[in-house]
Amino acid sequence: MLTFSSLLRALPGNVAQGMIWGIMALGLYVTYKILNFSDLTVDGSFSTGAAVGVMLIINGVPALLAVIIAFLVGCIAGLITGLLHTVLKIAPILSGILTQIALYSINLHILGNKANQAVNVNEYHLLLSLRDTNKSILVALLFAIALMLILYWFFGTELGSAIRATGSNEQMAKAQGININLMKVTALALSNGIVALGGALLAQYQGFADVSVGRGAIVIGLAAIIIGTVVVGANKKEHNFLLLLGSAVIGGVIYYIFIGIVLWLKLPTNDMKLFTAIIVAIFLSLPHLKIKKKEKKDATN
């Protein structure tokens, strides 16, 4: 039965989940938008964050501390991608893929050689859980706001602006005495730390960590960033950095509300990833298609 109330009942859950993925998108924003580096590590580091978070909680570590440690472990994952790229000179995408593949095995080890591990909200004190979606939304929102403020501050510092310069123009950065390799490694570590933090939050929310929870994370993150930029109307005028970060989180929420509607309409969820990929592909190619159209128009004039 397609009743509107059933959609409304499901909505808070979608918002909570979307916000957690929005947090993940904040991490992706650092590499994809600021460093101009397509980092595929995130599929692996998201699962790593989930695995580390859950295993620590099961072993008696407080939930908040577990999330922070998950962040640090995620940083290490990014560090490795950074070293593969800067020291061993492996291409960006391949560096990320290599770390991602390696993390799959490592994540299984972290999970005690199981594909998933449950963390029951009745047994452990968790920060958020799908049993209490309102509280989960609040907690996720607090994390998102805290991270946005930290990122806003960090990318306004000398170090942060050096990272932005590296992403904008490597040659210029070098000429200004910036160690671009160090900047890339730093940004990749920070990015994957945030992604892992998102993974740790999602695992608590859904009550388990799965080795493949991060599969396709990069596409969901990209979708969140792209939907967000569409919402704030990017490219029309310059936006405040804080607003751009916020738009990524909002993009994540909208994406999951969209998924909620797809589920409610009983559309085939197996095709969800296909839909997502098509939507992201369309939005990624839009600027290019617009230019082509304009060129054609100019040519005929």
Partner: peptide, 11 residues
Amino acid sequence: RRGAKRGLSWQ
């Protein structure tokens, strides 16, 4: 800041 150390003070 060319050639100087870049830290966490405002840019």
